[in-house]
Write a protein that binds this DNA or RNA. Structure first.
Length: 771
DNA sequence: GCTGATGGCGTTTTT
DNA sequence: CGCCATCAGC
């Protein structure tokens, strides 16, 4: 064991060696948070604390794995193995499986992923004869998820007037019933969704004191990473468990709370002192990652946060280069500029491609940069998007495994009953499911019983086909305990007929599907061999327990060696690159899901300047203006369409804070063009004229909208057509038509061409320049 | 059931 | 635009 304490600065060392009692470690970005966590655990182990009494919770598998590896390096893998270290979900799934009986679940319960959940919700919504355009499965899921994460059970939901009112307001008055039905069906299917893993753990601890006591006893030391990202459900579990010994150490940074949209409660970290009055605070304030300039820039934004834990992040690194702001007239140009910059910087500084990252807000924005990089032969890798385990063929095969392990798993049943095709269509499935729901049973329980099939109304031929399928699955199920994972997995893949499907015709898609399935089988083989070596059980259900909570952010392939990284700003949290481009900032100009009412003045207030050049003349004025060289603040806009300058205070002090896009203000608009000063246009504007990229739908809707717009504004349709449709962002929604002549306090129609006839009524206007 | 036309709509993400 | 859901029509 090396002398790890010497590798720490004073603050870090304090946080590592003071292991007793409640500790709050506030860890600024790049301040060595992971190092402190791992060393703290190593320190505990070194001082004779048994690994099995340490519980360390993270948010991602990746974080857990990395930490475990680092600890293993210090204390040896034999010791590290017995740590209770993993994601909230995996740890509590493990506990739930071993306590399943007492809460009425089999220990082999299925974990429904997002897709399963949504598809089940959709079925429920349909069967309740509700409109799935009002009750959108995704939206319903969010509501139910939020309820669960606040520990609101269906019964409590029904009685909660506040929630009921909110449901009324969003025109989903029957949401409570949907929730209840959803919970019922999950139970019948012996399934839990992700939120259930936490909710059920809470219920388990609440209703069974002796079990809570057992785990309180067991976990003498509890550590939580990214505490600012915990939701209420997670918070409460931790709080209950910590009551035992109060040796709880939470690590986080209120300034890095970026997941409130998925239920993270920053209050959990802000209120730590209330829960544990006797706590110690450790502040990690020295940033080892970034230059002073960058730390200063970040601080100038963070200081605008209203509630925060006082800290002063500083860097002793060199001041470093200025932050550059580069503007582009179009998205294509933006891609081109970034690609060029990468090539230049790489040459001039001998950087590797892997030293570059391109960050954007949404995954959909990657395309333009992919194209630009490909054109310049720059290798890149993309994070996000469809993960391996979400591919259809993988989900299909996994569904067979799931069904074999838990035959009540209705979502798996529905997935594979007719894949490959067995002549069991929607009608049959509909009958089985309806009957099952009526009888409070899983589909399997009906389908596997000939009498029930008869009653459900299946004809003899269909009954035979269903029976064959049941027989096949029973065959798989019967071998679960006798065969090891890989053998059985392979057998199921082949006997289910799935492998044959890919041979039907040799399309590239089929080849790729086949390869993916092979990759899954290889993974199972690896799992099986490793498990055997380490003396753990190596059956298919053991593999499936792990896989349900796995995503493939983890799989770093060898071939990903020297490549530019493309990912969302969110997923870059905690990573380091020498060169970072934050692109597509103008996307923020348009609030998505935009449908409220705003006055022109409010828009001005919001600094969301999504206005359009209305007429042909005005548009031309803008375009010629954009090609000129001009200055705004410290930013110099260069010919033809780019500006490079230093980031300045004005930029950073933007009221809305964060990564809001910022646009030239009035002084940048040439005074010569008086017309143009009354309206602004963001960079990245693309007009309909001469723009062959406009979508087909826009073309289709064009005429109708033009007429509508003209009628509303009382203008000549020809005139309006000229600059009417301007694409402000890459989402179709962003195509805005503003109506000439409307003043800030007047209502105006804003047309979203894609929304077809139902245009939105907004108070919206020509933006008045207020200085 | 499969296919192509049509329409709708588009955050951030982990488990 | 690009993906997905739906539906008419075979």
């Amino acid at each position: 064991m090396n002398n790890y304490l010497e590798e720490l600065n004073e603050a870090q060392r304090d946080a590592v060696v003071n292991t007793e009692g409640p500790s709050l470690v506030i860890a600024g970005a790049g301040s060595g948070k992971t190092r402190v966590l791992t060393y703290r655990i190593a320190h505990l182990l070194k001082n004779g604390v048994p690994p099995s009494s340490i519980l360390a919770l993270t948010f991602t598998n990746k974080a857990a794995r990395e930490m475990k590896e680092r600890i293993a390096k210090i204390v040896g893998s034999q010791t590290a193995r017995y740590l209770w270290m993993g994601t909230f979900h995996s740890i509590f799934a493990r506990i739930l499986r071993s306590e399943a009986e007492i809460i009425g679940y089999p220990s082999s319960f299925t974990i429904y992923d997002t897709q399963d959940t949504k598809s089940l919700l959709k079925t429920i919504i349909k069967s309740m004869k509700l409109d799935d355009k009002t009750y959108k499965p995704g939206l319903v899921y969010n509501r139910i998820s939020a309820a669960k994460n606040n520990l609101i059970t269906p019964t409590a939901y029904l009685q909660n007037t506040q929630i009921r009112e909110a449901d009324q307001a969003s025109r989903m008055p029957r949401l409570a019933e949907v929730y209840k039905e959803y919970a019922r069906r999950c139970k019948n299917a012996s399934a839990m969704d992700f939120d259930d893993l936490l909710l059920q753990t809470n219920l388990l601890f609440k209703n069974h004191e002796e079990i809570l006591a057992k785990y309180q006893q067991r976990f003498k030391y509890i550590l939580v990473d990214e505490y600012q990202d915990t939701n209420f459900s997670q918070y409460l579990i931790v709080k209950k468990l910590a009551l035992g010994h109060e040796n709880i150490c939470v690590v986080g940074d209120d300034a890095q709370s970026i997941y409130s949209f998925r239920g993270a409660k920053i209050e959990n970290i802000l209120n730590f002192r209330k829960d544990y009055p006797e706590f110690n605070t450790y502040k990690l304030e020295q940033n080892y990652r970034s230059t002073q300039t960058i730390v200063d820039a970040a601080n100038s934004l963070i200081e605008k946060n209203k509630r925060q834990l006082p800290k002063r992040v500083f860097s002793e690194n060199a001041e470093g280069e200025k932050i550059q702001v580069i503007g582009a007239l179009t998205d294509n140009e933006e891609g081109y500029l970034v690609a060029n910059e990468i090539i230049d910087t790489r040459m001039n500084h001998q950087h590797r491609f892997a030293d570059f990252a391109i960050l954007y807000r949404t995954n959909a924005q990657s395309r333009i940069f992919e194209e630009a990089l490909r054109k310049r032969n720059i290798p890149y890798k993309i994070y996000g998007g469809l993960s391996f385990y979400q591919r259809k063929e993988i989900k299909d095969l996994l569904a067979y495994y799931r069904l074999a392990i838990n035959v009540k798993d209705d979502e798996a049943f529905k997935r594979v009953i007719n894949y490959p095709a067995r002549g069991i269509g929607n009608t049959t499935m509909g009958r089985l499911e309806t009957y099952a729901v009526q009888n409070n049973q899983s589909i399997w329980e009906i389908a596997s019983n000939p009498d029930e099939c008869q009653t459900a109304g299946l004809n003899a031929g269909t009954q035979r086909k269903v029976a064959e399928f049941i027989h096949m699955i029973e065959g798989f199920a019967s071998q679960l305990t006798s065969m090891e994972a890989y053998e059985l997995a392979l057998q199921i893949a082949s006997e289910s007929g799935m492998l044959k499907e890919f041979y039907k015709d040799k399309t590239p898609e089929n080849l790729s599907r086949y390869e993916n399935v092979q990759e899954l089988l290889n993974a199972i083989q690896d799992f099986s061999l490793n498990a055997k070596e380490e003396g753990r059980p190596n059956q298919l259900n053991n593999f499936m327990e792990e896989v349900a909570l796995l995503t493939d952010q983890d799989t770093d392939k060898e071939e990903d060696f020297d490549k530019v990284t493309l990912m969302t700003v969110h997923s870059s949290k905690g990573l380091e690159f020498k060169n970072v481009f934050i692109v597509g900032l103008e996307e923020n100009l348009f609030p998505s899901g935009f449908s409220g009412t705003l006055t022109g003045a409010e828009l001005e207030e919001e600094r969301r300047l999504f206005y359009v050049a209305l007429t042909r003349a005005e548009e031309n004025a803008w375009l010629s203006f954009a090609k000129q060289r001009y200055r705004w603040g410290n930013l110099e806009f260069c010919n033809p369409s780019r500006f490079i300058g230093e980031i300045d205070e004005q930029f950073l002090n933007l009221k809305s804070g964060g990564l809001q896009a910022h646009l030239p203000r009035r002084e940048s608009v040439p005074p010569a063009k008086e017309e143009a000063t009354t309206r602004r246009s963001p960079m990245g504007i693309r007009s309909q004229q001469g723009n062959e990229h406009l979508g087909k739908r826009l073309t289709r809707m064009n005429e109708a909208n033009r007429q509508n717009a003209a009628a509303f504004a009382g203008s000549d349709p020809e005139e309006i057509q000229a600059g009417m449709f301007v694409e402000h962002q890459r989402f179709g929604r962003g195509k805005v038509i503003a109506i000439e002549g409307t003043m800030p306090d007047r209502k105006a129609k804003v047309f979203f061409p894609n929304a077809g006839e139902k245009h939105l009524l907004l108070k919206f206007a020509k933006l008045k320049i207020v200085e």
